[in-house]
Write a protein that binds this DNA or RNA. Structure first.
Lengths: 245, 245
DNA sequence: ACGACCCATATCGAATGGAGGCATAGGCGA
DNA sequence: TCGCCTATGCCTCCATTCGATATGGGTCGT
């Protein structure tokens, strides 16, 4: 912990009557999609908009899970640790992604900001009450969880059976597709996380990630651009490389 | 496909008025838990009880997902394939487990019986209608999906960061805990699946699985018993071994 | 019932290789 | 300038691959 906590909460929420949700850029992607104006207003009542610096830990595995979050800007990482420090990043969260589902009222992973982030913050109890009231939102959350489950299974295939090169290609492809679904251009891809984070997400070491990037660059599959951007030369080629075809 | 399809459906459902759910041994574990008698009756109306032989494939990745299943007896495996045949088993289903959640109305994995199994079979459409009607069931399903998500994250940590020995120990531990939650004794553990299946679940090869079992046997952590059973000598020791402590 | 045979699965040894570990050098931003 | 992140060469090692053998359950013929 640094002497000054760079990640302290700054409440930047607008007065409730302005309804921050109305102008939310990621509303269509997340749990608030398809809510009526009145329902949105009720949701806005219980949320708080917060901002954290890169590197700030929001919560750790095992903490009491009394808050749910929705990412509205920036990138987060979720991870689990082994006693000796080995780390597995279970997911990167982009704007529109939801975080905080828990089992036994305890977080099953730690959460840290990769870039500066802004989040909607919901007290768990009040959120649950609202879910009771709005089955539409409940269904939406369930559907998001189903999607995450499918993504988790893809990740298991990647971790268990893919080679280093296939892992990196799959990773770039995933970032590209997620960017696209958020209305950004799918190429070049912005890769905001460090080599170490990529390694801990793909079950590799930083050295292997680095070497593999070089190899893909040399074989003209990708180029590394300014500002952590990666240019994909042939999307179909990358897709083949990602599945060993 | 064998000349006779050993896995064909045999409808063994009792007449509707007998309400097969009333006597269901896994009701408390699954989606039907906490349903009232009347709701159970409605559920029973839309389900069919089916039985398949070991080795039968219920559906394959990419098939239209118009049916949901609930395992009532036996063990199933779910898996994904790469074009060249590499396989990752994403999960083993035991009695009480649910299967068939889908994205884009298409199954994201293939499902095959490991042992003879009996299943409750729900038409997707009618199940969805019932979920609308019984929010209690919707919540229960969401809670089951959340648990699965947490389990998937544990599995990512295992696949990405654990050694062969830690993987095998974690696997045995998981089987033991799941048996316990189903009211069976947690030791010795029944391990109904082949070395190849274990390998494809843990991201190893059959040889490594075999060698690791011998190694654990030699170092007196476990014993292999008759009938695919594994005796765990010290549960706490196994837990330490599973996390590299 | 019994043994011979077969096939699938499991086991084991030796050699190989892909990714890891370590050290160092280079680059970039604070 | 300092410190962190990244890149790369060299060597190591764990798990894989390949090959061979053992085991065990099931089937068939006598």
């Amino acid at each position: 912990m640094p002497p000054f906590d760079m990640g302290r909460v700054r409440d930047v929420s607008a007065p409730a009557e302005m309804n921050p949700c109305g102008a939310c850029p990621v509303r269509s992607l997340t749990v608030c999609a398809a809510l009526e104006a009145e329902e949105l207003r009720r949701l806005a009542e219980i949320l708080q908009t917060v901002r954290y610096e890169a590197g700030h830990t929001l919560f750790a595995e095992g903490d009491k899970a009394d808050t749910l979050y929705n990412v509205t800007a920036g990138t987060m990482k979720l991870y689990k640790l082994l006693p000796d420090g080995r780390r597995q990043i279970t997911g990167f969260l982009l704007p529109g992604d939801f975080m905080g589902l828990s089992v036994n009222e305890v977080y099953a992973y730690s959460a840290e900001a990769v870039t500066p982030v802004t989040l909607c913050r919901f007290p768990r109890k009040r959120m649950e009450a609202l879910l009771e009231e709005f089955p539409k939102m409940q269904r939406r959350l369930f559907s998001m969880a189903s999607n995450e489950l499918a993504a988790a299974q893809d990740q298991m295939l990647l971790l268990g059976r893919k080679t280093a090169k296939e892992k990196i290609c799959s990773f770039l492809l995933m970032l590209s597709q997620r960017a696209q679904r958020r209305g950004h251009k799918e190429n070049p891809v912005h890769v905001p996380m460090s080599r170490a984070d990529i390694a801990d997400y793909l079950g590799l070491t930083t050295e292997t990630v680095s070497r593999t990037f070089t190899q893909l660059k040399t074989s003209r599959v990708i180029s590394l651009l300014e500002g952590s951007k990666v240019q994909i030369h042939d999307m179909d080629d990358l897709l083949d490389q990602a599945e060993g075809a």
